[in-house]
Amino acid sequence: MRFMVVEHYLHGAAPVYERLRAGGRAVPDGVTFVDSWVDESLDRCWQVMEAPDRESLDAWTRAWSDLVDFEITAVVPTDEAARRALG
């Protein structure tokens, strides 16, 4: 499954990037980082992650919860959304 993850930085971007540089993303087995984008104010990050299910992201979000507040939504590609909507 794919998930859109919106990260809201609690203490700014610097602590997040310092930890990332020191230890990587710390994603558990079975979870894959796809891509990310950060707003110009460096307050939020949008990430696409792949994981077998929502619960698979829990260890990752716990590891970063002191620096980041997470919004996580399961997403489907546009062609699948159209197929579902139109039957």
Rank of each mutant, 00 (worst) to 15 (best):
A85S: 11
M49E: 07
V34G: 10
R62M: 03
A63I: 05
R83W: 05
A26I: 03
R83S: 08
S56G: 10
L86Y: 05
A59K: 06
M1V: 11
A85V: 02
M49L: 15
L20W: 11
T32Q: 13
W60G: 05
V68A: 01
L20R: 15
E50A: 13
A85I: 01
S41N: 13
P52W: 00
R2F: 13
E40N: 15
S41C: 11
Y9N: 03
R62D: 13
D39L: 07
A51V: 10
C45L: 12
D35L: 12
W60L: 04
R2N: 06
W64Q: 02
E40H: 15
G24A: 03
A59L: 02
A13D: 09
A26K: 10
V16F: 08
D66R: 00
L57K: 04
P77M: 09
S56V: 00
R25I: 01
F3C: 07
E80I: 12
W64M: 05
D69N: 10
P77Q: 10
R84G: 07
R19M: 01
D29C: 06
M1F: 06
A26G: 14
R44D: 07
L86P: 05
M49D: 03
G12L: 09
E80Q: 14
M4R: 05
I72V: 14
A74L: 05
R21C: 02
R84I: 08
D43C: 13
A51N: 02
